[in-house]
């Protein structure tokens, strides 16, 4: 397990606990009480730390290297029913955007999401979860195919942004995202969106328009990353903490602004500290959202979705 800077007290206590039980095993000294005390303290410390997370600390948690990624969720939810589908039928298969069919319970879903890697090699292979235009076009191809057969769509968002590359610009990164957003506003099947990590700007919204948008507790979603915001508005990378505060990018802020529909609670210590619990909560939430929308006619569904997005914005006059 890797620990973030603000998690150091937890790390220390966990190490103490390990040592304590080791002593118990290797000698005749009765350590039950000591261990219990450390355990109690550990729990309290965890509670204390996670109760008072700053926006920046949540940003750090959203990028925690042990956090589950899109394929982890899909495999946990669908088991071996998941059938990955590849390619945009134009240029190539984007490894930063994955998708395919799978069953959750008895219902088939089209599952799509950005995918990050878990070590240097796979991180590069997945381009750090930054999709190219062909990734967005693959996602749209899969959504249209789901629409054709009346299959609901689930999108998992976890991206530091759409890839800002030369070829990406040549192949129309802006157009690809714009097209997805437009088509998603009128897709005739229910769409559930789950923000599982980073939700950066157009790169996130390119698969992020939905009837129900869920956000895990320790994730962020905004128009720009706090680092880039700091570098543009403060002209220095040093103000990322302030930028994270100013952008109001946490799940709680987003719910307050009515941009997302639900906050999904994470286990104490974050999604990665108890993966199974996280997966089962997400499964429940996805099915709940699907049940809410499955009986709406395509016309009502689209109308409701368009109304929801039409009402976003705050202005005078």
């Amino acid at each position: 397990m890797e620990y973030l800077e603000f998690e150091q007290p937890i790390k220390e206590l966990e190490e103490q606990l390990q040592k304590c039980s080791l002593i118990g095993e290797e000698s005749d000294v009765d350590v039950t009480n000591t261990c219990k005390q450390i355990e109690k303290k550990l729990k309290e410390t965890k509670k204390e730390i996670y109760k008072n997370l700053t926006p920046w600390q949540r940003v750090q948690l959203s990028r925690h290297p042990n956090r589950p990624y899109t394929l982890d969720y899909i495999k946990a939810l669908c088991g071996d029913t998941f059938l990955e589908l590849h390619g945009d039928r134009n240029v190539k298969d984007d490894k930063a955007m994955i998708g395919g069919l799978g069953k959750i319970g008895d219902q088939s879903f089209m599952l799509i999401g950005q995918q990050k890697g878990y070590n240097t090699k796979t991180r590069q292979y997945r381009n750090f979860g930054m999709a190219n235009p062909e990734g967005y076009r693959k996602a749209l191809r899969l959504m249209k195919s789901a629409e054709k057969f009346g299959i609901p769509v689930v999108c998992f968002i976890d991206t530091p942004g759409a890839y800002p590359g030369l070829e990406a610009e040549e192949r129309g990164q802006g157009e690809a995202i714009a097209r997805n957003i437009l088509e998603m506003t009128r897709l005739k099947v229910p769409i559930t969106v789950v923000i599982i990590g980073e939700g950066a700007s157009g790169g996130a919204l390119g698969i992020g328009v939905g009837d129900k948008v869920l956000m895990l507790e320790n994730t962020w979603y905004s128009v720009i990353s706090p680092e880039s915001c700091s570098s543009i508005l403060w002209r220095s990378w040093e103000f990322k903490e302030q930028a994270a505060e100013a952008l109001k990018l946490t799940a709680k802020d987003m719910k307050k602004q009515k941009i997302i529909d639900e906050i999904v609670k994470e286990p104490l210590g974050g999604a990665h500290s108890d993966r199974e619990a996280t997966f089962s909560t997400i499964k429940e939430e996805i099915l709940k959202a699907y049940n809410e929308f499955k009986n709406l006619s395509p016309k009502d569904l689209v109308e409701k979705r368009m109304d929801k997005y039409s009402n976003m914005g705050v202005f005078k006059g």
């Binding site: 714009a178 957003i181 437009l182 088509e183 506003t185 009128r186 700007s201 157009g202 919204l205 328009v209 979603y221 905004s222 128009v223 720009i224 915001c229 543009i232 508005l233 100013a246 952008l247 109001k248 990018l249 987003m254 602004q257 941009i259 979705r305 368009m306 997005y309 039409s310 976003m312 914005g313 705050v314």
Partner: peptide, 25 residues
């Protein structure tokens, strides 16, 4: 997008696109 309105400005992408979809229909 206007950074000072953060995610609200991001949502204007969806809002305007939804309208253009209606125009297209």
């Amino acid at each position: 997008a206007r950074m000072m309105e953060a995610a609200l400005s991001l949502m204007q992408l969806a809002k305007t696109s939804a309208k253009l979809a209606q125009l297209a229909e």
